[in-house]
Design a protein around this nucleic acid. Structure first.
Lengths: 343, 343
DNA sequence: TTGTATGCGTTATCAG
DNA sequence: CTGATAACGCATACAA
């Protein structure tokens, strides 16, 4: 049956020293002589001692755990972010509890509570909430436990620590590019419009239109979940449009690729008949025919930046209370799906 | 500054009851009257009480935390597995600490230790170790904390709990299919051959050859890291082969797609000149031209199955010690990259 | 139905 | 340099 588990108490007893001495020795506390330190470490090894991080956290009020909440973790982009986070966190002696909100505020709320109960030292969230200031983060703010939003920030962005890219600028560049390639009627397929990311991209779209004095047509903005099934549905709707749009600006790559695939399957030539752009630069996007014009949006970097930001907040005392906003660079990749070169 | 945090003592004091009563009331222990239960819960709400899971875990010796170690978390397949795990775990009142080993035994070892120190109730590993029986799992086995290997199991598979698919059968089916489509010289691009997954696929490959009395040619087995850069390198090497191989059986989709892309770019017609197969059924694999023949290998299902298996182990007493092996179903998807239909 | 005493494993404080 | 004591917050056995 399960052995009892070796504690510092056992080590202390078998060496006739006190538990605190053992604790200090194992932590290389300078006030313990080299001799006893060595002796204790050897004994620990011999007995197969493993520290109990729970007990330590309880006592020190520091868990070295960071909480992460994302809508879902199985998208190419999000898993890259998480990979970057995990690496940076572990390098700094922390680790992650990762939870999914599945695009619902209720789940997000439960997750926030659970992570608080586990006394994480910081919380990183790509929020799914569309409210201005979700009240369920209050326990964190009250206890001054840092919260950093990444990618998807709450509406009142200025109130919180955020790590994002300039989505408006990105949306603007894409739309401008399409306009310069002689597209006039540009369909924009976007995600949940309550989310800042998508709102900002849309604003960029509008801005570019305005510059060219093209009137904004609401019926050309389609809100979808941006997944593969919705991509199929969108493609079918596009095929029925008369006339066809000149271009489709899709708010993520996987949906853009799906749409491109179904349009091609139905005899639409890309980019000659319709130009298409994506967002996120999925590694495969370069391999399609034509290759996809998109925004390169480095997930791992964002993950690393978010954790590093978090660590700064944790290590600064007094804790920084002025909200800071980190805007990461992105690249606009012009490829085959928006011009006529041979890819 | 950071508030002190409300404990059951605070609630007890402000209601003139004892802390244990509060503890029991909050847990809906039947021996507490409805009245006081209600009263205590209201007070808890009023004071913004949040339970301290660390303290609770320390006391009960149960953390409701599961550890997960994967080579890297940002592959389409692995992130799907993790998504499935997270969902099943949370549904059962557990949560995950996810760590990456980056394909090194050393990292894996450190991760195992950290997760042990955090007293996870179970450990799920897609191992990167090529040794028969990695000794660093010993603390888990000694304390009878269940360990389940998924996807990648250690060599002595029979000794451990495992959740995998029948990789030999999959490799066999693919190879047989290629042989039946008149391929003779089949290049096999595989991953680290010390890992069971890849060994088994190779065995399937050999078995199929043997059935057709084709002699096994070692020089047609290329060990790579199966990532995109290695895919490019492999494609370049293939272009230099004289004669070209009849087919390429690649051990994962992303690498297969990369190879296909570079071959096509260099004038090779797929499947007419070279047939290609992948492994894992990346959602996009159906969208390429030609679409990719592959093994559908459901990541989320594997994640769910692994967690459910783990929960069974945790909830069975005495803990099941006879190692069990769960072999999940897979589907063989025959598509354009191995025949001449119009996809 | 509720309270008392105690322990989970560690570390901080203070004394020696 | 080391030891005694207490405390982190909660939950259990036992008593009332």
């Amino acid at each position: 049956m399960s052995k009892k588990g070796v504690t510092i108490y056992d080590i202390a007893q078998s060496l006739n020293v006190s538990p605190p001495t053992v604790s200090r020795a194992l932590k290389d506390h300078p006030s313990i002589s080299q001799q006893t330190r060595q002796m204790i470490k050897e004994k620990a090894m011999e007995l197969g001692y493993q520290t109990n991080a729970l007990a330590s956290s309880l006592r020190t009020q520091k868990s070295y755990t960071l909480g992460v909440i994302v809508p879902r973790l199985n998208s190419k982009f999000m898993s890259s972010v998480l990979a970057g986070m995990e690496k940076s966190a572990v390098d700094a002696g922390y680790h992650l509890i990762i939870m999914q909100s599945f695009e619902t505020e209720e789940k997000e709320k439960e997750n926030v509570r659970l992570l608080f109960n586990h006394r994480v030292d910081g919380l990183m969230v790509s929020t799914t909430s569309s409210s201005d200031a979700p009240e369920y983060f209050a326990p964190f703010f009250e206890k001054n436990i840092p919260v950093v939003f990444f990618d998807r920030a709450p509406k009142k962005q200025k109130t919180y620590h955020c790590v994002t890219i300039d989505n408006q600028e990105a949306g603007y560049l894409i739309t401008k590019h399409l306009l310069e390639n002689n597209s006039r009627r540009i369909l924009h397929i976007t995600g949940n419009k309550n989310l800042q990311v998508y709102q900002h991209r849309l604003e960029g779209y509008k801005k570019a239109l305005k510059e060219k004095n093209i009137t904004y047509d609401r019926s050309l903005i389609w809100e979808t979940s941006l997944d593969i099934p919705d991509g199929q549905r969108a493609a079918q709707k596009i095929l029925k449009m008369k006339p066809l749009p000149d271009a489709v600006f899709v708010a993520n790559d996987s949906c853009a690729i799906t749409i491109m695939h179904y349009l091609q399957k139905n005899g639409i030539r890309i980019p000659e008949m319709i130009q298409i752009t994506g967002f996120n630069n999925d590694p495969f996007s370069a391999f399609f025919k034509p290759s996809l014009t998109t925004i390169d949006y480095p997930g791992e970097k964002m993950g690393e930046a978010t954790v590093n930001f978090m660590l700064q907040l944790i290590n600064s005392k007094p804790i920084i209370s002025v909200p800071r906003h980190l805007s990461l660079d992105f690249k606009f990749l012009i490829r085959g799906s928006t011009h006529n070169s041979h890819d």
